[in-house]
């Protein structure tokens, strides 16, 4: 399992880039590429064929959000784990809506990083409490926004999903949530995953609709 994981690290700060790459290499993951800016990351990604890209949200040449979109537009795209310092609310939300699979704070420990990379590789959503708060807020914003005529597709959370997401935002681990709601760990994971999938799907639909409205579809 471990040997299939090929990681690309994108961070403009050499100290962080090296530390993250070293931690992952020590854990037995293959670090296939590192990049100090978004442009290089997008250029070398096709040859590197990474399965997971660890992307810093703040890059000198383009935003982490754009790097995420451009990497995901590649032929066999890596899954994206966003790594950032705290406080960049809107950017984190935008990156996740653009298709990032997970989000981790830079203050996270080595073990948390390795665990996050493993889960992102498997396609599991990796949430921090902060991201759960952002996603909850985004669903409420979408629900409150005046709906354009004939768009019944505004994503909504089920009661159970809201419940799970609130517990994640309050800092409970999946295990604790599973125990509290008497669900399986996997079910909790699926609920979290669904909240993200719906948001990403909605984002893609919105982008396509925008493109058609602007006459960019041809």
């Amino acid at each position: 399992m471990t040997n299939d994981i090929r990681v690309m690290v994108v961070d403009d700060h050499p100290m962080w880039r090296d530390a993250v790459a070293r931690d992952l290499a020590e854990a037995g993951y293959e670090v296939v590429a590192t990049a100090g800016d978004g442009g290089k990351a997008v250029r070398i990604a096709p040859a590197a064929r990474a399965t997971v890209a660890v992307v810093d949200l703040q890059l000198p040449d383009m935003s982490g959000v754009r790097v995420t979109s451009e990497l995901l537009a590649l032929e066999s795209p890596p899954r994206i784990l966003i790594l950032s310092a705290s406080g960049e609310h809107q950017d984190v939300l935008d990156a996740v809506k653009a298709g990032a699979t997970g989000y981790l704070l830079k203050s996270a420990s080595k073990d948390e990083l390795i665990d996050a990379v493993t889960r992102v590789h498997q396609g599991d959503a990796v949430f921090t409490p902060g991201l759960a708060g952002l996603v909850l807020g985004e669903y409420r914003r979408l629900a409150a926004a005046p709906e354009p005529a004939g768009s019944p597709d505004t994503p909504r959370l089920t009661d159970r999903e809201t419940e799970v997401l609130r517990l994640v935002a309050k800092g409970l681990t999946y295990k604790q949530i599973a125990a509290r709601l008497t669900l399986s760990h996997r079910t909790v994971q699926n609920h979290v995953q669904n909240t993200l999938n719906k948001l990403q799907l909605h984002n893609r639909v919105e982008l396509v609709r925008y493109a058609i409205d602007q006459g960019l579809d041809d």
Partner: peptide, 13 residues
């Protein structure tokens, strides 16, 4: 109030 000990989660807006 955010610190190493206190995590604050808010909407983006």
């Amino acid at each position: 109030h955010a610190s190493a000990r206190v995590t604050v989660s808010t909407p983006a807006t």
